[in-house]
């Protein structure tokens, strides 16, 4: 089967797929009005876990509900389809939260397609705390502090390290103690919200309710522009 054929079959934007993703964890937003002031991402790439669902909730709350979603796996067809989209010549902003393996592939394909990466985050969530390493460009100025404030307000224990690409300044280190175990589920929604409104005025970051789910694991978040 040709790449074009695969593209036709598989690149139908998964408007309904978000529902599939979300049905696993049923996050509920805590009353955050959607912001329509920012540049909307054209596509969100997510895996199938609870953290990705929370990320999507945060992104949708910030960007509006029209955010198309593509569920990614590490399969060759899926990656080739995404590469095809990147190379289609249409300007596009893509945000996402994926596992380490899928994100490695996505970001490498993005590089080869000449994409710009404004935000690259590596995240680990464990019981009661999270770790974040960010590598950012100018468009993400202030986002690390905003995320830090969000995590702090949620009561999550966290460490956050931010490097600015090309900066001679040392990496920024931020941290907060755990004040509430429940807060550790908020990180993914916060990142979704940040990435959906990157480069626009700061918005109130959403909190999600994820019943009985600890958003643990390792993930990579990104904002890509082609």
């Amino acid at each position: 089967m040709s790449v074009d054929r695969r593209f036709v079959l598989k690149s139908m934007v998964l408007g309904g797929a978000a529902g599939v993703v979300l049905s696993r964890s049923v996050p509920v937003l805590a009353g955050v009005p959607p912001s329509h002031s920012g540049i909307r991402p054209a596509l969100a790439l997510v895996g199938s876990g609870a953290a990705e669902a929370a990320f999507l909730q945060g992104a949708r709350a910030a960007a509006g509900t029209e955010l198309p979603v593509q569920q990614m796996d590490r399969g060759l067809d899926c990656m080739l389809d995404f590469e095809h989209q990147l190379r289609a010549g249409r300007p596009m902003q893509v945000i996402g939260l994926l596992d380490d393996a899928a994100a490695t592939l996505v970001l490498d394909l993005a590089r080869s397609a000449g994409a710009r990466v404004h935000w690259l985050g590596q995240h680990t969530a464990e019981a009661g705390s999270t770790r974040h390493r960010l590598l950012n460009a100018d468009l993400a100025e202030g986002c690390a502090r905003q995320l830090s404030r969000h995590l702090h307000a949620c009561g999550a224990g966290f460490t956050l390290n931010e490097e600015r690409q090309g900066s001679v300044a040392p990496a920024r280190q931020l941290a907060g103690p755990a004040r509430s175990g429940a807060g550790s589920v908020q990180w993914a929604a916060g990142i979704g919200s940040l990435l959906a409104t990157l480069g626009t005025r700061p918005t109130m970051m959403p909190r999600v309710s994820v019943q009985g789910t600890l958003l643990s694991g390792s993930f990579v978040s990104f904002s890509i522009e082609v």
Binding site: R116, H118, N136, A137, D138
Partner: peptide
């Protein structure tokens, strides 16, 4: 030369 162009090469 821009930061966002160089990040993918890190």
């Amino acid at each position: 030369l821009k930061a966002e162009q160089l990040i993918p090469y890190n």
